[in-house]
């Protein structure tokens, strides 16, 4: 139910029944490789195009998520998913394979939490028994659309980020053993007039801060409620900016408390400048690494704030600034710690 201006409280504890997380060869060398269910050793993934490879990431992640709880696609009522490619075609192709009634989402890299929040809301209100939700990105497919050709020798600035080749899908069901969603805050479009597409973290930080602030205001909570506040892909540049913005507003988050999926995904020596990005980044890291750490009792209450930069190559060429958004979902592991 609605709480405050833009948040939902879930009273029936819709939970994550299962997840499927897949990645590419570069992620296999990364920091959280062990948290992936499957890692492809080739960027093409035996497909004829990188867009099809991204579709394969989605299909594979979905299949793994379903198989872990012995479900067939027909057991799932809806799928809420999206990606970054024009008209989210790869998601549509993946959902053609799945054959599950489908709502396409576009929230750029915030799609993972947009989908999770909507899934929890629909399950909470008995709109479905099971919903599949998630997102994917493929380095070569996404960079092709938004940036220069991948083999083009341009020198990237230290604020640039590396699009992850990864997909994370979750089956959301009614109250169960898995970690459950307790609340969500949907963000509004925030645009501070940042124009550099090689500094997404800097552009998205105000959107993340805006959603986190709204979350604490709506729910009348303070940061100490959460073990961790995990942002989607602010990276090394955006995360400190968000912390500063929150502290200016009197929301005293600690440095240890704030993690970012974009800085978790790769190792220091992988030369990805400011970290990972892409709609597959937060979905894979949260549904893999973070949920595993929750299962291992290393975390019990987390607020995941997935951030998205809602630009297109066209808006950039027309000198428009970068509109950004962030959606937050609180995930709690029952029976651990206090809540």
């Amino acid at each position: 139910m609605l709480q405050g201006k833009q948040s939902w409280m879930f009273t029936t504890s819709p939970s994550i029944a299962s997840t499927g997380v897949v990645g590419g060869p570069f992620e296999a060398k990364g920091n959280v490789a062990r948290d992936f269910d499957h890692l492809f050793d080739d960027l093409w993934m035996s497909e004829t195009s990188f867009e099809n490879a991204q579709k394969k990431l989605m299909e594979e992640a979905s299949t793994i998520a379903l198989s872990k709880i012995n479900k067939q696609p027909e057991d799932i009522q809806f799928v809420f998913a999206g990606d970054l490619i024009n008209q989210i075609t790869t998601t549509s192709f993946a959902c053609r394979t799945l054959g599950i009634p489908y709502l396409g989402l576009f929230g750029a890299c915030s799609t993972s939490m947009e989908g999770l929040a909507l899934s929890a809301m629909v399950i909470e209100n008995n709109g479905a028994e099971y919903i599949l939700t998630g997102s994917a990105s493929h380095n070569a497919a996404v960079e092709k659309q938004f940036r220069y050709p991948t083999e083009y020798g341009s020198q990237k600035p230290p604020t640039a980020q590396w699009t992850a080749t990864a997909a994370g899908f979750a089956v959301v069901g009614r109250q169960g053993e898995g970690p459950s969603m307790t609340s969500a805050t949907l963000g509004k479009v925030v645009d501070r007039g940042m124009t550099d597409p090689f500094n997404m973290g800097g552009a998205m930080a105000p959107a993340a801060a805006d959603t986190v602030e709204a979350h604490f205001t709506d729910l009348n909570r303070d940061p100490s409620y959460y073990d961790y506040i995990i942002t989607g892909d602010l990276g090394k540049v955006g995360l400190p900016l968000m912390k500063e913005l929150l502290r200016e507003k009197g929301i005293m988050v600690t440095d240890e408390q704030c993690l970012d999926c974009g800085t978790l995904l790769y190792k220091e020596d992988q030369k990805v400048q400011a970290g990972a990005s892409g709609s597959g980044c937060s979905s894979a890291v949260v549904y893999g690494h973070i949920l595993n750490r929750m299962k291992n009792n290393e975390m019990s209450t987390v607020l995941v704030v997935a951030t998205g930069a809602l630009l297109s190559p066209l808006t950039y060429q027309q000198k428009e600034s970068i509109p950004c958004i962030a959606h937050a979902v609180a995930i709690e592991q029952k029976g651990v710690g206090s809540s």
Partner: peptide, 17 residues
Amino acid sequence: SVNQTYQKFAQKQEPKI
């Protein structure tokens, strides 16, 4: 003015080329 304040703040924190 809010935008400009943020842009200056973000620029100050940005790792320099």
